[in-house]
Amino acid sequence: MKPPSEEHDLIRWLDGEMDETERAAFEARIKANPALAQEAEEMRALSAGIRAHLPAEMAVPHADFFNSQIQVRIGQMEIDEARRREAVAPVLGSLLSWLRQSWLTAAGAVAVAVVAFLSLRPSSEDAHSLILSSYTPSAGVQTVTFHDDNADATVLMLDGLEEVPADRKISGISISRSETEPEMASTTLFDAAGSPQLVIFRDAAGNPQFWASKPRG
């Protein structure tokens, strides 16, 4: 095996990456070394063959279809984006206004409890979730969790919040985790009638996504 510098010199000469001085010196070496001369000539022939048989431009099969498919996909992307903006804007607006209510600020932003799900372990005996710890930003708010056998659900109670007005469009929050994909969690906000208004979740690639219901006319 040749030392790297010799290999590099050969291909730099072949590819025209040498300056005049280097090139003259290397060509003098080629003249004095028949084996190097043969290798250089073989590589040059190979390089010429590759260039001759690998075109830089090729006819695209079904070229019109190629273009039209791109246009279709661009059109679909734009429709999806418009729908997303249309669906999200009103609900997010109402959610933000809900979060800006005076009762909320007066309570020192304790209305939202952050619950850390350190572990949700389905038991073989009873399949309810086990919440190991929880956290609320205000000491005045306490969280209590328990499993309701009748509802077959884990209940999270926030004690100490000011009363949320009953006419708020969004009146409930639930957090769920997929049983088949443990890393897949979602948060759902419900209106007073129990209909989901906003769902926040991660897609299969782990990117945050949200789904919002269409605003009621």
């Binding site: 690998l54 830089a56 070229a63 246009q71």
Partner: peptide, 15 residues
């Protein structure tokens, strides 16, 4: 306009 760019460069990109 983008379709024209596609037509112009599709052969080189495809190659």
């Amino acid at each position: 306009a983008f379709d024209m760019l596609v037509t112009k460069y599709r052969g080189r990109i495809y190659a």
